[in-house]
């Protein structure tokens, strides 16, 4: 039984990461944009939903936050998704015309700026302290059911992953996605065909950021308490690793990559008893992520589920 509980926890985390990877795959896999601001979209989704759904804290010694709305969780989830998309749009407006690695550096810096704001504006976000007591959706209803809450949440998260997957797969294969692919291969060609390349890049950025925001709201409502250190740039890098390992350009690959990454990070939880170097284990796992990422790029550059044709497109970018 305990093993099943553990599986559910890891599965929920994997679902949240899958959503993040789906958003990233729209940016990099479909459009060829080097987005390094994913942690910021994740954070904005989480904080927006948390602030909207918690009541205004009572004034006390440690209560620095003066804002809270106590709205239903659904409102928080929708608002978090939308606000992350808006942030994606804003960040993209400043930088989407930049070429490859310039875009990477500007988005990375922008994401750090967002984290800085969350860290410093304590009246809104409780600052460096944890924002606690985030409500879980339908908790009282689920309590009357014979299953544990994690079963419900696991199904909820993965239902959303499934719906998002179908939606994005459809978008990617539809007219919108075809323009994005053309931009990825060569944006001058798309421009010459009369497509407003900048507009499409902005949309791609906003949509992908929105999904990352959705992932953030689901994360916040699952873990009860969030703090700025949960949204370091290493999240962005882990999601990059997931997309590359899974195979850029493939939404199924993005999900597989996210599951692989989460599994690599959580695998030692499944090993019972004491193991040598247990103190260093979390670091060793992240070292392993680095090794796997480099090994995949060397032995299977197109990723587990990517196709080699997409890879050709990737290499022409930035030359």
């Amino acid at each position: 039984m305990a093993l099943l509980d553990l599986f559910l926890v890891v599965g929920i985390i994997a679902g949240v990461y899958s959503l993040l990877a789906i958003g990233m795959n729209m940016h990099w896999g479909d459009t060829g944009l080097l987005n390094f601001a994913h942690a910021a979209f994740f954070a904005v989704g989480a904080y927006t939903s948390a602030i909207l759904t918690t009541p205004t804290p009572e004034a006390g010694l440690l209560a620095e936050r003066t804002v809270g709305f106590d709205l239903p969780v659904v409102v928080g989830i929708v608002a978090g998704t939308v606000l992350a998309a808006v942030l994606g749009f804003v960040i993209a407006t400043t930088s989407v015309r930049l070429e490859g690695d310039y875009l990477a550096m500007v988005t990375l810096s922008s994401a750090e700026l967002v984290r800085l704001v969350i860290h410093n504006e304590a009246w809104l976000t409780t600052g460096a302290q944890t924002l606690k007591n985030i409500p879980r959706p339908m908790e009282s209803t689920v309590a009357t059911l014979p299953v544990s809450y994690d079963v419900f949440y696991f199904l909820l998260v993965w239902a959303l992953v499934g719906a998002t997957y179908l939606l994005f797969e459809r978008m990617s294969n539809g007219p919108f996605g075809r323009v994005l692919h053309a931009i990825r291969e060569n944006d001058d060609v798309a421009l010459a065909l009369g497509k407003d390349v900048t507009q499409f890049k902005l949309k791609s950025f906003a949509i992908g950021a929105g999904v990352a925001g959705l992932a953030g709201t689901l994360w916040a409502h699952y873990v009860y308490a969030i703090s700025p250190v949960m949204f370091l740039p290493s999240i962005t890098f882990l999601i990059w690793a997931a997309v590359i390992i899974g195979g850029a350009g493939s939404y199924a690959g993005a999900i597989v990559g996210a599951v692989v990454i989460v599994f690599l990070r959580q695998v030692t939880r499944f090993i019972p008893g004491s193991v040598p170097f247990s103190d260093q284990m979390s670091y060793l796992r992240l070292m392993l992520v680095g090794v796997v990422l480099v090994a995949v790029l060397y032995y299977r550059p197109e990723g587990l589920l990517g196709n080699a044709e997409r890879l050709q497109a990737g290499t022409s970018e930035g030359e």
Binding site: W240, V294, L297, P301, E317, E319
Partner: peptide, 14 residues
Amino acid sequence: SPVTLLIVSIGVAF
């Protein structure tokens, strides 16, 4: 490509 190298360097950084 430069982008592949950038991602390789993420692995090295980890």
